[in-house]
Design a protein around this nucleic acid. Structure first.
Lengths: 301, 301
DNA sequence: GCCATATCATGAAGCAATTTCATAACTCTC
DNA sequence: GAGAGTTATGAAATTGCTTCATGATATGGC
């Protein structure tokens, strides 16, 4: 059968206006069109929806049943259309974030906390599961933002600069290397290096320092959580390299020392990879702005 | 604006079939038509409902939102259509009954009790409020059945015979008239007559006996409830005339006597007035049959 | 990576459904 | 029962949906 929303609207209008002609006005069609429409609907449903005997057309029992449906359903689609128009003007949307950089949890969480307060209708999520192939997922609209430090030239994708950070050497304060003012690649030769469990090319120590210098650490141990890495470092089970926003937590602790990598220090840049379509959406712009501000707060601390 | 059920069905089909072409098959339209339709819908809503980048067309966030609506709403209209088809085949409907005859409660209630068990989906009600102008209300479909003992020739209305009954004289067993084998009009001349509070022409005593004989009782007192009338009669505050199905309750009580009106007794016939359209509906036929059976049980008791 | 295949998009043309116009039929009120 | 008000109807005009034919794009196997 073919009951349509149009029919629900008509039923409702006729009931409320208390007549076909007035209802037709409200619906911006002629009385004739509405009459034909109702006739068609009744033939479709096989049921008389109105009492014809009385002149200001009145709903029959079946008509009332249909009206009840209309009053239940019409507000729902109106609500949906409101959501859609919010989506269109960018006051709502989906913001699923994939992070390639394992330590980014540390600054992203506080950012999202602040973000949720001003944009409560945006559907925010972090998807660490597919951190591997984040950029293809971004292109397929499986996620909406990828935090990355390796910009690529992809169609429809833009890499928006977030902030700079420094990968910093961390060791226990009792560690021999604590004596040096800065750390070089060759210093790792006889060390146990503790890293996040991802491929080397995605770790700053390797990509920026050890691989170019062709240095291999004595051993590499992996730990998932930043807190665990720091624990291992404190108990002298190895040394690590972490972004500055992470080491700021231990900078003033007497258990740790932090040192720059190379004499002048390394600098890396983080990007938010987003689809061009999304870039100018207000909530997206806001998130990126927040990320910059909050991260700098962390780095300054 | 112009979201229609058609669109909801399409969204759902595409999602379930996992592709536009297969969905189009299910919907019995071409792939092209569906493509155009979705395009139109997206323009309407101003929102992308599907992710175009991936090839087996996938729902976007907004698309999922619409799907959720579809899954909520579509079953509702299917349920409605089931109700309508039940209405068409007569297994459900509205059965609002108006009773012109005030004492008919007595047999109608038991009838409806039985009826509700076999036809639970029929919307049954008794509307005593508009007992006055019941037949016009029947024509205007405000009620669906009128119990009446005065058939009229009205277009679209049929009077279906229910059963015959006898208006019977009731008095306290101590009442002087209890001595007579039957009661005549002139016997009322010096009596207080207790009646239902309706116009005289609609009371059997008057229309069938007193008005033709031009007899006026000494006084007339009215009571709404049958139980109250009987109470007043028992305490000798007056006499009354009630249908046989009512007096059967007191027939064997030593407090009352019942006597026929006139030597041969009066006989009246009750009718169910219904619209011709409704007459052959199964539930209507059933109710009428039940009324006959149950009433005769009461009269026989 | 490239080609074959599957899948979706698009434009023009045809067709069906909806709307309108003009007017008839009906109901209700006075 | 005349008149105002309201709904129904038929035919023509219009809208918009569908189809056909074909182009564009993605996916998977080699």
């Amino acid at each position: 059968m073919h009951i349509e929303f149009r029919h629900l609207r008509s039923i409702k209008a006729i009931h409320e206006a208390g007549g076909l002609a007035k209802a037709a006005d409200q619906l911006h069609i002629t009385q004739s069109a509405l009459s034909h429409q109702i006739k068609g609907l009744e033939e479709q449903a096989g049921v008389e929806l109105f009492v014809r005997r009385s002149k200001p057309l009145r709903l029959s029992a079946a008509g009332f049943r249909l009206l009840r449906l209309a009053e239940q359903v019409l507000p729902q689609i109106e609500a949906l259309q409101a959501e859609f128009s919010a989506l269109r003007d960018g006051s709502t949307g989906r913001l699923h974030i994939a992070i390639e950089c394992h330590a980014c949890f540390e600054w992203l969480f506080p950012v999202l906390e602040v973000f949720r307060r001003t944009w409560p209708d945006v559907d925010v999520d972090i998807r660490p599961g597919l951190a591997f192939d984040a950029l293809p997922a971004l292109m397929k609209e499986e996620v909406d933002l990828v935090v990355s430090s390796d910009p690529e030239d992809l169609p429809g994708i833009e890499f928006v600069e977030l902030f700079d950070y420094a990968p910093v050497f961390v060791a226990a304060s009792t560690h021999p290397l604590a004596q040096k003012p800065y750390i070089e690649a060759r210093d790792f030769r006889d060390q146990t290096l503790i890293t996040y469990p991802v491929e080397r090319t995605r770790l700053d120590v390797f990509s920026q320092l050890l691989i170019p210098a062709k240095v291999e650490p004595a051993s590499v141990r992996q730990a998932e959580l930043t807190a665990v890495i720091l624990l291992l470092v404190a108990s002298n089970r190895g040394v690590s390299v972490l972004p500055d926003w992470v080491v700021r937590e231990v900078k003033y602790s007497s258990d740790y020392v932090t040192r720059p990598l190379t004499e002048r220090g390394l600098t890396r840049r983080l990007y938010a990879a987003v689809r061009s379509d999304d870039r100018d959406k207000p909530y997206m712009a806001k998130l990126i702005e927040l990320a910059r501000v909050e991260a700098r707060k962390l780095q300054a601390a």
